[in-house]
Amino acid sequence: MAMDASAIAKPHDRLATYLADDLEAVNGLIRTKMASKHAPRIPEVTQHLVEAGGKRLRPMLTLAAARMCGYDGPFHVHLAATVEFIHTATLLHDDVVDESAQRRGRPTANLLWDNKSSVLVGDYLFSRSFQLMTETGNMEVLRILSDASATIAEGEVLQLTAAQDLATDEGIYLQVIRGKTAALFSAATEVGGVIAGAEEAQVRALFDYGDALGIAFQIVDDLLDYQGQSAATGKNVGDDFRERKLTLPVIRAVALADAEERAFWSRTIERGKQDDGDLDHALRLLAKHDALTYTKDSAIGWASKAKAALDPLPGHALKDMLLDLADYVVERIN
């Protein structure tokens, strides 16, 4: 499998090098399944997103889990493509829901085409993902990925109501991000173990790793929204504030707020009345209550849980890369 992966710095790049042949097969399958004889808009929209320079992190997790557990059949490629299709479908839908203008540093599909195209092409990709799943002939794989799809949708709907309600606490926040992000991470790793016929304790370990990694990943994303740089994140700093999303930094600041501060959060987040200077004031309140440090510590804690989860798995070069990946997810903060 290609060149020495250890010579490459970032763990997801090392994974991509180690899994280069598998990833090429996944990309080929994605291109084949993106095609549509009757609706050329489908490959146009999909290609814009799929080719936008995403890291293919989720499909790599499936490939890595399967290979780490000794799998040498063809179906890990189908499952990795399935995971990427589910992810891409949710991105298309998310950008419509969030009215986003930028994704991975490029204009979103709904901006370049329209909301109708984004929603319908997202639906097409979901359908394609289920077609791909069935090709494995494995009912357990079908159960895991269909459950994950339902959990993702549930998390997104929960976020609609929870995001602008100051009563949203860390427990509800965790439920939201477990749905919208961690569910696909954990399904991606779990199905890799299942298709490889790994023993139950190892499959559980892979699920736990993906779950904790996905939570850490989303917490870091939410933190970077307040302290990242647009060039690095592909988003505008403060988007979550402008979109009135209650993420962990704000939940922490609200929990420690006095009456005047709570009134500010109520006006800007719950009622959506935002004026010039409000983002700067929000950042001052986050700093006052050390909310960003608290959020960073929480992400580091989940990354540690992800690493500990891999203990039942045997020594393997891919295991080392997955351990490093958990560290790298939180290193993005710096």
Rank of each mutant, 00 (worst) to 15 (best):
T90N: 10
T90F: 06
L92I: 11
L92G: 10
H93V: 06
D94Y: 08
D95H: 10
V97E: 14
D98Y: 07
D98G: 03
E99N: 14
E99C: 09
E99G: 12
A101T: 15
A101E: 15
A101G: 11
Q102N: 03
R104A: 06
R104E: 05
G105P: 12
G105V: 11
G105T: 12
R106K: 15
R106D: 09
P107G: 11
P107V: 12
A109L: 10
A109H: 11
A109M: 12
N110D: 13
N110Y: 09
N110C: 13
N110M: 10
L111C: 04
L111A: 15
L111E: 12
L112D: 05
W113G: 08
W113Y: 15
D114N: 15
D114L: 08
N115P: 06
K116M: 07
K116T: 14
K116N: 12
S117F: 02
S117Q: 13
S117M: 12
S118W: 08
L120I: 13
V121L: 06
V121M: 07
V121H: 07
D123H: 06
D123C: 07
D123P: 08
Y124A: 14
Y124C: 12
L125H: 09
L125A: 08
S127E: 01
S127R: 08
S127D: 01
R128D: 03
S129R: 09
F130P: 04
Q131C: 09
Q131D: 15
L132Q: 01
L132W: 02
L132C: 01
L132N: 01
M133A: 08
M133V: 14
T134V: 15
E135F: 01
E135C: 00
T136S: 11
T136C: 09
T136E: 05
G137N: 07
G137I: 00
G137P: 07
N138D: 15
M139I: 12
M139P: 06
M139K: 03
M139E: 05
E140C: 04
V141R: 00
V141G: 05
V141L: 03
L142A: 10
R143I: 02
R143A: 12
I144M: 03
L145K: 01
L145P: 00
L145R: 00
S146Y: 01
D147R: 14
A148L: 00
S149C: 13
A150H: 13
A150M: 14
T151I: 10
I152E: 02
A153R: 00
E154T: 07
G155R: 09
E156G: 06
E156L: 08
V157R: 07
V157N: 05
L158H: 08
L158N: 10
T161Y: 14
A162K: 02
A162M: 04
A163E: 13
A163L: 02
A163R: 15
Q164K: 14
Q164S: 15
Q164V: 00
Q164P: 00
